[in-house]
Design a binder for these strands. Structure first.
Lengths: 337, 337
DNA sequence: CGCGCTATTGCAATCGATTGCGCAACCTTG
DNA sequence: CAAGGTTGCGCAATCGATTGCAATAGCGCG
């Protein structure tokens, strides 16, 4: 059905090897310019498309990238994935997407299946602060982490600057007059949860505000548990006037908790999220949050990985930090006297 | 690095062909049971993983499925994609995901690149009512359409029952007492836009309500244009008390238009969406809508495609229609006298 | 005029798995 | 015990592209 190198060679009366060289930009200089031209013409005419399995078998490169995320239905990820797709496909690479649901066993299985597929590299959004699998993986493949990073070892990564983002958030409510500021943190096994909590403590200290233990509560990454945890916080310390949540889902949990406690937002409680997922401008109330450039994280990760694939030798480990920005909407306001 | 058939054969003193047959369930009966066992043990011990490029080259099957959607960042799709991923990967297939942004040229290019990758079949969510590319594609590959369908030809598809869904929507507002019901329709090139509009007309007629031309307005699939169109509708006919939107984004456009015209929802205007995308329970006001089983559409499409790949001959064209359900929230209510 | 060099192309092996064909050994049956 | 059948396995070709090496031709230069 589809034309092969041999077909083209036959038609032109040359050897398949010549056709191969003519069509490959890297080796075309080995072939007479006129021949190259004839081959190109013929290939186009027969609309020849190289068989990636054949070339992959020979070269053991699949031009395929494993993309590992917790869950595609988490609105944080589609933007990042599109960023990768757009720049990977432009470079002739195809992402293979898998979900782990934050389960290490599933992750191991998915990574194994991607290795079975002979992917050329990995982009992972599933890093835990301590993550042996990733360390092992990084020693055999080019990998780039996004969003979250590991602590045990420095790996190439692309993420937003959490330190800066949290500073924007805390400064925002501080500037409006809040002093009783609390943080609803994500799980400490995740770098984002941990780092944002660390950043919160630091910024509070710099502002001269005390950070009592009870001002930081930890929850899993989901709305329901965030709501429960926020209920507890608000019950224990009713003086709190502003809560900085470690991501938008947690902020929504806080809003639901506030609603249940008959607190009005932002009059009685200011809430600020993190990530600015799609539709956060439409929830009730529209959520003030820290926007991270989702598409750009994805495309930057792809670029970084591609550059690793291009260079033979070890490129230096590059840790890209993108700058988040504050998006003020209606869930924050000055504290009520 | 990785073990090959030959390695196993050498270690066991048998021929690679025997190893191949022993490891393939379809041919294992050709090999002595004891040998099969020895081979399996050895393969496991050397943690042998077959090279998909090699087997693909020989068999010309990539165990790969092209998945073509308009835009992953549209919240309607991640659920469907996960549905596919989950059932495809269970069957040893890997989806290759591309976006078209509803642009036919991009679509053609993406489909071409998937064909270049030698995918074994396609799942497409980009059908237009008239769509020559798909007809051509269907003649050469197993394909399954999701969400939208073509009209020119009957192709295997999985979608929600739009007729039923619209009936649920219209009945809902009718039962609450609304009589001046309008429809904000999607573009007519898309089957969902067209069919939902058709269904709206039919149901209205069955209820004995007149459908004036002005009771149905057509808009593109985005919030901004939906808002403009809804503004026009409401200006032309202020008697309208309920609007059935062709999807959730359009419903949000309607809500924004209503807000701009100082109409309160649902007191002055009831709005009902379609699809029940994630977070539609959190927008202001929480959106009454028609839930379509997104994950199930994806997994059912995958199953359908897999069954086509399994059977050699032409399986009959199966058009699966899943049943949507009404989700009542706060954007609908009885009309105010 | 001949040697050596370069430019161009052909040859053939190779990547790893699959599969039609054939052969040998063993078994069944009359 | 011979004829015919079955079972188990090896042989070798094949899928399509890549690439080291060899071969040829053409050229410049002494």
């Amino acid at each position: 059905m589809a034309a092969t190198l041999k077909d083209i060679a036959q038609k032109l009366g040359v050897h398949p090897a010549t056709v191969s060289r003519a069509l490959n930009p890297r080796t075309a200089h080995l072939v007479n310019a006129a021949t190259v031209e004839r081959v190109r013409k013929a290939a186009a005419a027969m609309n020849y498309v190289p068989n990636p399995m054949a070339s992959g078998l020979r070269t053991s490169r699949s031009h395929t990238i494993g993309v590992v995320i917790p869950d595609l239905t988490n609105p944080l990820f589609p933007g990042m994935v599109r960023g990768m797709q757009d720049t990977l496909s432009r470079a002739g690479y195809t992402p293979l997407l898998v979900n782990t649901d934050n389960d290490p066993a599933t992750e191991a299985q998915m990574v194994a299946s991607l290795r079975a597929r002979r992917v050329d590299g990995f982009i992972l959004a599933t890093a835990r602060r301590d993550h042996p699998l990733l360390v092992e993986l990084a020693s055999r493949f080019p990998i780039v982490l996004i969003n979250r990073v590991t602590e045990s070892i420095q790996l190439p990564s692309v993420a937003a600057d959490d330190q800066h983002g949290i500073r924007l958030a805390v400064d925002h409510v501080y500037d409006m007059g809040h002093r009783e500021i609390a943080h609803l943190a994500g799980p400490k096994w995740s770098s984002t949860g941990h780092e944002r909590a660390q950043a919160f403590n630091r910024v509070m200290r710099e502002l001269g505000l005390s950070v009592a233990k009870r001002n930081v509560a930890v929850t899993a990454w989901n709305i329901e548990e965030a709501k429960e945890t926020a209920m507890g916080m608000l019950a224990r310390d009713p003086r709190i006037t502003a809560i900085v949540a470690a991501n938008d889902q947690l902020a929504i949990g806080v809003i639901e908790a506030a609603r249940e406690r008959r607190l009005r937002i932002p009059r009685d409680l200011s809430v600020i999220g993190y990530n600015d997922m799609p539709f956060m401008d439409l929830v009730d109330p529209p959520l003030t949050t820290i926007r991270v450039p989702q598409h750009e994280i994805g495309s930057e990760a792809a670029r970084l990985l591609l550059s690793h694939l291009a260079e033979e030798g070890g490129t230096p480990v590059k840790q890209v930090r993108l700058t988040p920005e504050l998006v003020v909407r209606a869930s924050t306001g000055p504290p009520h006297p």
